[in-house]
Design a protein around this nucleic acid. Structure first.
Lengths: 227, 227
DNA sequence: ACATGTGAAGCGCTTCACAGCG
DNA sequence: CGCTGTGAAGCGCTTCACATGT
């Protein structure tokens, strides 16, 4: 039951959870097919993924929504709250600080830091921007477990070093650069520019395949796809 | 040479390109091993990926940096500039508008929209926030090809519908919800809350495996990993 | 009859190992 | 000799099909 969950499944569990959370409150059961439609995946995938949790659905009926929500939260470690610190208090950092810590999310932003003295002291949501030097203190006192890097690329490695030094070993990196960290520290890059470039690839490709137009090979306001 | 490039390779090309762009200007050659170290991947992967481009390296020497940069840009469709419109002018939207359109990126933000009349008219960078109703006009006039959704989840589907109606078929969705679009429209979700939840999974897991501490199983300030 | 759980087949990506070329 | 380009093996994920259970 607590067999190693495949990475691909771990990446989808948050998706299922969000679909389940958005469900009507009176919905008690859901089939793999219906959940698959909501999550934009296949039903077989849903069943295989959920089977990893040791959560048993009911044959002929489906899964108990409430139970399923709990099982996924449990598997993801969302039965407790994790402290998050954000480094970089520009627009992005401020957006992420508000975005991440909403009540009930399982995450609480406990610190927002910036290297620029001109920004330090600014109130953001319920927090005040602090100097990066205070990172170790805050992270330690508040028991922060996750760090978010929202600095320019040029400061990202330094931010990562500070986070690691403060005992944080899970990092979300929004800066458009790779960072190096000691073994045992997990970094997940989130990169706008790379995403745009991948979109560019597909635009470029479909522009070449037939349609000679300027990059809008779709003129088909047809079916709103799945459900 | 223009054989279908595997999706996994497409996702890595922007990474290689960024590494090449960050290289010292006088660097003329680079081996697959060195590029692999910079990109945090394996050398075999680099060679297989680059072979897809029909870009030939020089045996015994490596790849010509300049040439390689051009080939990757070409493959990604970055030899021209793509117009980008951003829907949602909160902190996130403003951050993305500045982030995406910097000169030389291959992208130009041509419009920033918001449904809130209180925000419309605000200057952001070189742009002014416009009402969403103007989206079709601006997207048409400026030839925008990519849309970025930076609205709350509750408005994301509507934003997507407006983008599609305006003829845009490549969407980057930063809202924490799935959106449905007609076939032929590509959507890439970028989701902070899911990323945090995946990090939570790993924290949770390593906290269970041995270390009884509060979620910081790493106390190992050892090697700064690879190269 | 309906929907889950699961072996097995299918498929793509990664890794290996080395031939080939500069 | 060094490094690329590439078949082949290895591995994981997805899909299929159906036995199983209600």
């Amino acid at each position: 039951m607590t067999r190693p969950i495949p990475p691909a499944t771990v990446e989808r569990l948050p998706l299922y959870l969000r679909c389940l959370e958005d469900l009507a409150p009176d919905r008690e059961q859901i089939s793999s097919r219906d959940l698959a439609a909501l999550a934009h995946v296949t039903a077989a995938k849903v069943r295989k993924d959920l089977a990893c949790l040791g959560t048993y659905g009911v044959r002929g009926k489906g899964y108990a929504v409430q139970r399923l929500r709990f099982e996924i939260r449990f598997a993801l470690g969302l039965t407790r709250e994790w402290g998050v610190v954000v480094v970089g208090a520009g627009n992005l950092g401020r957006a992420l600080a508000g975005y991440a810590g909403f009540p009930g999310s399982g995450f609480a932003v406990v610190g927002l830091f910036d290297a620029d003295p001109g920004v330090v002291g600014t109130p953001v949501g319920g927090l005040t921007v602090e100097p990066v030097d205070r990172l170790p203190d805050v992270a330690g006192d508040e028991g922060a477990a996750i760090g978010v890097i929202a600095t320019p690329a040029s400061s990202a490695q330094e931010a990562a070093d500070r986070l690691v030094a403060a005992g944080i070993c899970s990092i979300l990196n929004f800066a458009p650069t790779l960072i190096s960290v000691p073994e045992g520290v997990e970094v997940r890059p989130v990169d706008l520019s790379s995403e745009l470039r991948v979109l560019s690839f597909h635009l470029h490709r479909s522009a070449s395949d037939g349609a000679p137009s300027r990059g809008q090979p779709c003129d088909d306001p047809s079916s709103s796809s799945d459900s």
